[in-house]
Design a protein around this nucleic acid. Sequence first.
DNA 1: AAAGTCAAAGTCAATAAAAGTCAAAAGGAG
DNA 2: CTCCTTTTGACTTTTATTGACTTTGACTTT
Lengths: 143, 143
Amino acid sequence: MKSLADRIEQYLKVLIERSDCKTLEVQRTELAETFGCAPSQITYVLATRFTREEGFITESRRGGKGYVRIRRVDRETVPNAGVCSQEEAFARLEVLLKRGLLSRREVELLKCVMSQKVLGPMGLETDFLRAKMLHAVCELLNV
Amino acid sequence: MKSLADRIEQYLKVLIERSDCKTLEVQRTELAETFGCAPSQITYVLATRFTREEGFITESRRGGKGYVRIRRVDRETVPNAGVCSQEEAFARLEVLLKRGLLSRREVELLKCVMSQKVLGPMGLETDFLRAKMLHAVCELLNV
DNA sequence: AAAGTCAAAGTCAATAAAAGTCAAAAGGAG
DNA sequence: CTCCTTTTGACTTTTATTGACTTTGACTTT
């Protein structure tokens, strides 16, 4: 027995495969109407079936003429090394500052480049990536 | 379905690129008439899509023979949605160094954090990611 | 020159049209 | 029954669009 969510998922995936650039742009409300469900159902489908781990990146715009864009990207292999959340990374940078190994400005630069906002919709691997970045910095500093 | 604001934005950007000196002068009222909208809509488009951060400078004059002038200025920035190879990114960092906006050490820190080696086996998205990182740095530096 | 006129552009708040959030209710598999 | 997934709806936030009102500047009249 297929659920509504399953059917919406299927529908979107067909459209994406047919599209140029593996990119699809739809309106949440419109799609919800097509399937006769609540708009938040669409959000649910995107959140559970079009995640970064599944190989999708979604972006959207609110307000008038808003949209949801789904892009299928090549799934990369995630080698399992360390992970590091934004908070953790920021804290470690502050430590390096305290120890006099980085200047305030350097910390700010690195923070902005490691922020969740920038690493953006890359999903879980964000933390993996951040760990590698931090590691590289420490190596450069010989610490 | 593009919004009106999107269409006006696109229209203006085409005209700017075609123009000499990347500079365009239009009349707000006239443009509004062309698109059949309120003049304040033009103001809105300028305020949200032709900001300094996006790489544009706008000037204007009220009253008789008034105008709006839009100039695209050079940014060392990669558009937020663009892509950027390691070589390109490194070159841009060097430019920022030459311009005195970053120190040698800061450049090295950023290079190591943006290197292919660190961003690792992320495939195509590496370039996507690097563009976002560079964009964030430029934003922080206000350039 | 000072004042008045008119044609610009600017401001701002109201309204509309999306998408996001989150918790609660409903379903379904064991 | 219990747990996990699905589905919904009330509420929030963001973006777009408009229109009434304000400010500015060139030109005209006194």
